[in-house]
Write a protein that binds this DNA or RNA. Structure first.
Lengths: 235, 235
DNA sequence: TCTATTCGCAAACTCTGTTCGCGAACTATG
DNA sequence: CATAGTTCGCGAACAGAGTTTGCGAATAGA
C-alpha cells in the first residue's frame, strides 16, 4: 500500500523501487511504445492490452509503470514536447512567439493524436515546463504582467491546436458531412440569406501554412500590442 | 437494409418511417434526456444504457433513433446551440461578435460537457447554421473576404471554448497537479530562471468575466482590424 | 382480416480499463 | 551461502462500454 508517490505527481514519483526485483522496462520505453501506436493507428488504438502487446508483456504489467491510462496519456503528451528546439531569445518577442507556434504546429502535425489531448487535458510536465520557461524568457522584456503573458501563451496554444485540428480533419468524414449540410442549406433555397452571404466563394484558397503565421501574428499583436511600441497592461 | 438515410446526414434523415409501427419517442426527447444526464453527471455518464434508463426503455431501442453514440453527441451539441438569442446586427460588428462570444461562454458554462465536444468534433447542424448565418450577417459590411470571416468565427469559437474549459477546470485534480508541479519547480531551486521570471506574482487576479471580453476584443481586432477603420484583406 | 413494415428490446458479443493474487526474481542482510 | 524482504510479471477475472442479432408486438394500409 505504501507505494512511492510524491503527492500523486508522476513527474516526482520515483520510477522504480530501490529494492526488490528490478523492472524489465522503463517508463520512457512504455511511453515510446504508446506514442508509436498512436502515431500509427490513432489515440483510440492505445489500449492497455495493445501497448502491452507492443512491448511483449501482459496488460496488467503496465500498472507497475503507470497508475492509470490517463497517466499514460500525460506521459505521451509531455514526451513529444521534447521535440521543440528552443533557441535563445532573439530580441524580437513576436518573431520568437511565432517560431514557438510553428514548432508546435509541426509537432501537432507529426502526432495527429496530440491536438485533442492538449486541448482537453492540458498537462505540465518536465518538457512542457521547459517550453513555458522559454516563452516567459522571450517575453521577459515585455512590460505586461505575468498573468497577461500566461494568457497569451494559453491563447497561442489554443489557436495552434485548433488550427492543427482543422488541418488534420481535412477531408475527414465529419468534415465532409458538415460541408454537405452547408451545401444542402445553400442549395435547397431554404436559406436565401445564407446563400447570399456565401455567394462570392473564393476561387483560390490561400495556403494554410501561410495563413497560420499570419493569424498568429495578428492575434499575438492584438493581445500584447505591436512589438516596437508595447502598451502598458492597464488602461 | 434500405434505411431512410439521405447521404448519411442525420439532419436530413427522416425521423420516423411513414409506415409500420410508430415510434414511442422523438429524436428531440432522446437528445433532451442525454443533455440532462450530461448536465448532471458529466459526458462520460451518457452511455446508451443510462440514456435508455432515463427514458424508461432498453438500450438497444436507442438505435432506432440514432445510428451511433457519436451521432447522439452531435445531436446534443447542436441542440444547445438553440440557446443563443440572436438580435439583428447593430452596425458595430465588434460589439456584436463579442456578444456572440459571451453567449457562447454562457452556454458553455451552463453545459460543462460542451467545451470538449465542440473543440474535438465540430458539428454543423440546423442551430449551428443559424449562428453561422448570424455571424456572417454581422460581418456583412466588413470588407474582408469570406475565408477571413470564417477564420475569425473559428478563432472566436476556439478561444471561447478554451477559455471556458479553463474556467470549468478551475480547482480540478488535474489543474491542482499542474500547479503543484509548477510550485515544486519554482521551490526546489532547480529552475532558478523560471523562479525569477515568475517572481512578481500578481497579488490581485483580475475577474475572469472581464478578462474574457477584453481578450476576445483584442483578438478580433487583431484579426479583422479596428472596427472604425477596417483594413483590406490582403497586404 | 390480412399483409407489410417498423418498433421495442432481451440477450449476446467484443472490447475496454482495472484489480487480485501468486509465483518468480532480485537485493540486502546475517 | 541461505534466508528474509520486497518488487515485478502477468493470467484470470470483473464491471461496464458500444453495438448486433433476432424475434415478438404493434401499427397502417389494403
Amino acid at each position: 500500500m505504501a507505494q512511492g508517490r510524491s503527492g500523486d505527481l508522476i513527474w516526482l514519483r520515483p520510477e522504480h523501487a530501490a529494492v526488490g526485483r528490478p523492472a524489465q522496462r522503463s517508463r520512457a520505453e512504455v511511453t515510446a511504445a504508446s506514442v508509436a501506436i498512436a502515431d500509427r493507428d490513432g489515440l483510440e488504438a492505445v489500449s492497455m492490452r495493445r501497448v502491452a502487446a507492443e512491448l511483449g508483456t501482459g496488460a496488467a504489467s503496465l500498472y507497475r509503470y503507470v497508475e492509470t491510462r490517463d497517466e499514460l496519456l500525460d506521459l505521451m503528451t509531455d514526451s513529444v514536447a521534447a521535440e521543440y528546439s528552443l533557441a535563445a531569445p532573439s530580441g524580437d518577442w513576436l518573431a520568437d512567439l511565432v517560431s514557438v507556434g510553428e514548432q508546435a504546429r509541426a509537432i501537432l502535425r507529426r502526432h495527429p493524436w496530440l491536438a485533442p489531448l492538449v486541448i482537453t487535458r492540458p498537462v505540465l510536465g518536465p518538457h512542457g515546463l521547459t517550453v513555458l520557461e522559454h516563452v516567459l524568457d522571450v517575453l521577459a522584456p515585455h512590460p505586461a504582467d505575468i498573468a497577461a503573458k500566461l494568457e497569451a501563451f494559453a491563447t497561442l496554444n489554443a489557436i495552434t491546436a485548433v488550427f492543427a485540428l482543422n488541418e488534420l480533419a481535412g477531408g475527414s468524414a465529419a468534415q465532409r458531412r458538415n460541408a454537405a449540410y452547408l451545401q444542402h442549406a445553400v442549395t435547397s433555397g431554404e436559406h436565401p440569406r445564407l446563400a447570399r452571404l456565401l455567394a462570392r466563394a473564393p476561387a483560390t484558397t490561400a495556403d494554410p501554412g501561410d495563413r497560420y503565421a499570419d493569424i498568429l501574428t495578428r492575434v499575438m499583436t492584438g493581445l500584447l500590442g505591436p512589438p516596437s511600441r508595447p502598451r502598458p497592461a492597464m488602461g
